[in-house]
Design a protein around this nucleic acid. Structure first.
Length: 250
DNA sequence: AGCACA
């Protein structure tokens, strides 16, 4: 039988081992700084980390890249931490598809990419990186930890490294003189908001994003004043929904 | 769901 050709297309997601892991299914509510730090805390136990990258753009939220100094660390991290509950979600971990810039720079193979803003045609732009797709034969031995520990191990007893138990999605934002107000009725106007917030010392201005109803930014002269206002108005119901006030991201 | 290097 000539079905061997099908072997070429193994079940997708087989990427050759490399020193960068790609993580997705991350909790998108976690602030970027917090997320990166937590990832660093978790994964630094598998080896030296060169860099942790995460972005909040639409296309890349909920994902992160952790670059290890050694590919072996990445392998261990995948084996041990895939499906690990992290901020109430199980992280999915794979090898990254492409080499990280930090690595390429150390390699000497780094070639700066241009941000294709223009439709400028460039000569000789064949970036077919011939990656010999040799499939390593260690596919389905014991990939994710559930297979290692039998089925469905008690999450609380998984021997993960650091004290990285599922953390609260709501990480405390650092104080800011600007407040971020959510859960407002969509018909709320800046005027209405102002009535509430302007009664607190140091009030400066309201900013609302037209494209995004239901939220507002309220600026005070300093953090003390914004904090007082936040505490005074936290949970205040404009119509029926309590407004949620946090410090704005810096 | 989604593989970047701001």
């Amino acid at each position: 039988m000539e079905m061997q050709q099908e072997a070429n297309q193994q079940q997708g997601s087989e990427v050759s081992p490399n020193q960068t892991i790609y993580i997705n299914n991350l909790n998108e509510k976690v602030k970027l700084d917090v997320l990166k730090k937590s990832l660093n805390d978790v994964f630094s136990h598998f080896g030296k980390i060169l860099e942790v990258k995460a972005f909040k753009t639409l296309k890349h939220k909920g994902q992160a890249w952790v670059v290890f100094e050694e590919a072996e660390s990445a392998s261990t991290a995948i084996a041990k931490m895939n499906d690990f509950p992290f901020y109430d979600k199980r992280m999915r971990i794979q090898y990254a598809k492409t080499k990280s810039d930090v690595v390429a720079k150390a390699d000497g193979t780094f070639v700066p990419r241009e941000k294709r803003k223009r439709h400028e045609e460039k000569a000789g732009g064949k970036k077919k990186k011939d990656q010999h797709h040799d499939s390593t034969q260690m596919g389905m031995a014991n990939s994710a930890y559930p297979s290692v520990y039998g089925t469905a191990p008690p999450l609380s007893q998984v021997p993960y490294p650091a004290g990285v138990k599922p953390i609260l999605p709501e990480a405390p934002a650092p104080p800011n003189n600007i407040l971020f107000v959510q859960n407002l009725p969509h018909e709320t106007t800046p005027m209405m908001i102002q009535m509430f917030f302007s009664q607190y010392q140091g009030f400066k201005e309201i900013r609302m994003v037209e494209a995004k109803p239901g939220i507002a930014f309220v600026e005070y002269a300093d953090e003390m004043q914004s904090t007082v206002a936040m505490q005074g108005l936290q949970g205040f119901k404009i119509e029926q929904d309590p407004m949620l006030i946090t410090y704005a991201k810096k």
